Simulated assay, not measured.
Amino acid sequence: MPLWQIHHPVGAYSEQDKRAFATDITAIYTAVGLPAFYVVVLFHEVPAADYYVGGEPSDATVRIVVKHLARHLDDPDRRRVMTERLDATLHPYTRDRKLHWEFHVEESPRDLWMIAGLWPPDPGTDAERAWAEANRPLPY
């Protein structure tokens, strides 16, 4: 599952912005065959008095932590392409709003991950395609 935690200034995003942002993020992963329900996006509003960058309060910074479990990329070229795709997806919600942004991606081992008591199916399998089609976990 990709888990996105978006730490942002208070009021940076409306409910409509958050929905659009989460939809754009989800599209990254469904485009490569992941079930939409794998994608979890959490928005965390942080007041400037609690948000420091370089030791100074910030009211214009977005910090994103992305955790990947379903897919891992070992090839440096594919990692670069993925990172640049994530960055491009962020632009309407960061650069275009004149916000400073930073993100990083962490990869967790698949064998430390379960959904609803089930081990997620291996990538590209019929079971994973069934999960994507049903948009929920299914016994297999």
Results as ranks from 00 to 15, higher is better:
M1I: 03
P2R: 01
Q5T: 14
H8D: 02
A12Q: 06
S14Y: 07
S14D: 10
S14M: 09
E15R: 07
D17N: 13
A20T: 13
A22C: 08
T23N: 12
D24G: 12
I25G: 07
A27S: 15
T30K: 06
T30N: 10
A31E: 14
G33V: 02
Y38H: 04
V39Y: 00
V40S: 11
F43T: 01
E45C: 12
E45W: 05
P47Q: 05
P47G: 08
P47F: 03
A48V: 08
A48M: 06
Y52N: 07
Y52I: 02
G55C: 02
E56H: 10
P57L: 01
P57M: 02
R63F: 15
V65F: 10
V66I: 12
V66F: 03
K67P: 01
H68V: 00
R71S: 02
H72K: 07
L73N: 06
L73S: 06
R78G: 07
R78N: 10
R79D: 07
V81Q: 13
M82K: 04
M82W: 12
T83H: 10
D87E: 14
T94W: 00
T94D: 02
L99G: 08
H100F: 12
W101D: 15
E102I: 07
E107V: 06
P109E: 13
P109R: 01
L112A: 13
M114C: 14
A116T: 11
A116I: 01
G117S: 14
G117H: 11
G117D: 14
L118N: 07
P121F: 09
P123D: 13
D126F: 00
E128R: 08
R129L: 12
N135I: 04
N135Q: 09
L138V: 08
L138P: 04
L138W: 10
